[in-house]
Amino acid sequence: MPAAFRFLVVLDADSTLIRNEVIELIADEAGRGREVAEATEAAMRGEVDFATSLRSRVEALAGVPVSAFGRVLARIEPTPGVRELVAAVHDRGGVVGVVSGGFHEILDSVAPDLGVDVWRANRLATADGMLSGVVAGGIVDAEGKAETLGEWAALHDVPLRRTIAIGDGANDLLMMAAAGLGIGFNAKPAVRARADVVIGPVDLREVISLLP
């Protein structure tokens, strides 16, 4: 059985754990970065259904070679304070998870490098060394994020009241509502309006004082 932890912190990835929106970086490889960025903004504001938007944006990635992931990874910028926050959570007996509407292909490298304990994201289908333009398997959407927080809390024997969810976009709202504390970070207006706490500075060290 997994060890019990005092509390659980779950972060969104894009624009929370990292400064970037990964799908936009991949779209740059197809020359469609601006188009995808506009669609991502609409999804994060809650103006369109996340899963429908993601499928549409992933279509724009068709034909990008898998080898481009190396260039994308080189452009990733961890959010200021992320390593300090992760260290503080661990020092206080907590566990850190990341659940993302982004992609395992990037998060599988970024998350362990930043000290994250567990993570979940979408996967991109490929054929002949290139992206197919579709999501492989089920989509991690708002409901999926909330369910994942609950699964990880149960797995590590953490009551929901001792969970913290941190996110910026509309698809983070359900997991923020499910958590004991929902923190809006680098947040869109819809998230700022419904978060328990809003952090203004884009520095995850600001979360440390809120840890149990």
Rank of each mutant, 00 (worst) to 15 (best):
L211N: 12
L131E: 04
G115L: 03
M130A: 13
E151M: 09
S109A: 15
L181R: 10
A121N: 04
A127C: 02
T163S: 15
F185V: 00
G129P: 14
R75G: 09
L11K: 03
A37K: 15
V110G: 07
F103D: 02
E29M: 07
N122A: 02
A193H: 01
F185P: 00
A3F: 13
V202G: 01
R57E: 10
G81D: 09
I26A: 12
L17P: 00
V9W: 06
A193Q: 05
V89N: 00
R34M: 08
A74F: 07
E24K: 07
E84G: 06
V207C: 06
M176Y: 02
V82T: 03
G94M: 02
E147P: 00
N122R: 05
P65A: 07
G70R: 15
L25Y: 09
D172L: 02
M1S: 14
V64W: 02
I139G: 05
A37F: 13
S100E: 13
L85R: 02
P112Q: 09
I164P: 08
A27S: 06
E29H: 01
E41P: 06
L17F: 08
E143T: 13
V66K: 02
V191T: 00
G182K: 12
I199A: 05
V64C: 01
R123G: 07
S15K: 11
A43R: 09
F103Q: 00
R162L: 14
S132R: 15
G169V: 12
T79E: 04
I106C: 03
G81T: 09
E105Y: 01
A60C: 12
E35V: 07
S209I: 04
T16K: 07
R71Y: 11
E77V: 08
D12Q: 08
N171S: 13
L25D: 15
D108N: 10
R123Y: 05
A4R: 12
G63A: 03
D157L: 13
V48K: 14
L155W: 09
S100K: 12
I199P: 12
E29Q: 13
V64T: 04
H90Y: 03
V191S: 01
R45N: 06
G70N: 14
V116T: 05
G33P: 11
G129D: 14
D91W: 07
F185Q: 04
V99A: 10
A111E: 00
L73W: 09
V135L: 08
R123E: 12
E151Q: 14
V10F: 04
V116S: 03
L173V: 15
M175T: 08
G97S: 05
P2W: 05
V118M: 07
G115S: 03
G200F: 04
G33N: 11
